[in-house]
Write a protein that binds this DNA or RNA. Structure first.
Length: 326
DNA sequence: ATGGTTTTTACTGCGTC
DNA sequence: GACGCGGTAAAAACCAT
């Protein structure tokens, strides 16, 4: 009956990605990333996704240069550590080593000279502690990012951005209360999105050892606190995939994109699911081209309810009617 | 926890092939 | 009569507060 489709963050946040759909099982003839149709190039012996251009090796085991992990830039980044920054978090560990009380071992008050000395000691002790702690943390996280990045077949520059994101999170003390793994995977996911090669959430979650709930929470948190600008997915990025799955004519596909363009001009898309918009366009376009298509079909391949398709495509058509609105 | 928004589910009537 | 379509109401899912 109703398959309990896990909703992705994107659908709700309107910060959408290429995935979200039920493209779970079609790994054979579809692009693992965007689900687009694959085109096999015999000459070069590689398989390329027609939609997103991703090159998929026939037996997609080894995704290239995972082994040359760090380039000079990343190495450089790695060796740097965040500034000492706030002391909010570490005073506990500190006070257990150097007592905060200005007393000596017998409980006698210290001289003012001694107090100053102790104060300096505390300061430095804390600096080293936070440094060590963060460095360790970072090291482990970078390892995770590398690992997940490889597992997800992400390009090196994506892993770099991911590590930068993670570093920022670390420097802003966003880590306490979150798992390294969670933040790392959130960074990976965000980086992949920013690089325009998004990975499906469930894949990211799979590559890590956290559950989806935690991932979502963490991802949201990171994006918010870091003010990361993740653009909502362009609905157009879906039409290619949908179009080929629905065997639309080129003409229809072109019209679908047109509809989305005009729709975007009229801000039809704000607050709405990009996938829903794309589905609506993919439904409306063939009709305009006198091709037959049913809402049920579109709903089937897009995983968007017919009701939503109806609502959206009316809006799209309205937007197309009046090129110059209020 | 609560409220607000979007999407989905379920059900309806209407027209057409 | 089945099918596709449009509309509605209730509910679920989600986010933000």
């Amino acid at each position: 009956m109703s398959e309990a489709r896990p909703r992705t963050i994107d659908e709700q946040t309107r910060v959408a990605t290429h995935e979200t759909e039920s493209d779970q099982e079609r790994t054979q003839n579809a692009c693992p990333e965007c689900g687009g149709a694959l085109h096999t190039d015999e000459e070069h012996g590689e398989t390329v996704c027609e939609e997103c251009g991703l090159v998929v090796e026939e037996n997609s085991i080894d995704h290239g240069p995972e082994w040359r992990a760090f380039n000079p830039q990343e190495k450089d980044e790695k060796s740097r550590v965040g500034a000492p920054t706030t002391k909010l978090m570490h005073d506990k560990g500190l006070s257990s080593v150097i007592d905060w009380q200005d007393k000596d071992a017998y409980g006698n008050a210290l001289s003012s000279k001694q107090r100053q000395k102790m104060q300096r000691l505390r300061t430095w002790d804390e600096r080293f502690r936070t440094r060590d702690h963060k460095e360790r943390n970072l090291k482990q996280a970078l390892g995770e990012i590398e690992r997940m990045g490889s597992a997800l077949g992400l390009a090196e520059n994506v892993r770099e951005t991911a590590s930068v994101i993670y570093r920022r999170a670390l420097e802003e003390d966003l880590l306490p209360g979150r798992s390294i793994e969670g933040v790392a995977s959130a960074a990976i996911y965000a980086a992949a999105r920013q690089a325009g090669t998004p990975r499906r959430i469930d894949r990211v979650v799979n590559a890590s050892r956290i559950d989806e709930m935690e991932f979502k929470r963490t991802y949201r948190y990171i994006v918010r606190e870091l003010g990361l600008e993740i653009e909502p997915a362009d609905p157009e990025s879906y039409v290619g995939r949908f179009a080929s799955e629905l065997d639309l004519s080129d003409e229809a596909e072109r019209r679908a994109r047109e509809l989305l363009e005009t729709g975007k001009d009229q801000l039809v898309h704000v607050g709405k699911s990009p996938v829903g918009l794309a589905a609506a366009a993919v439904y409306a376009a063939p009709l305009l081209c006198n091709e037959t298509i049913t809402q049920a079909e579109v709903s089937e391949v897009t995983d968007i309810s017919e009701v939503t398709i109806r609502n959206r495509y009316q809006e799209l058509l309205d937007a197309a009617e009046q090129p110059r609105p209020a």
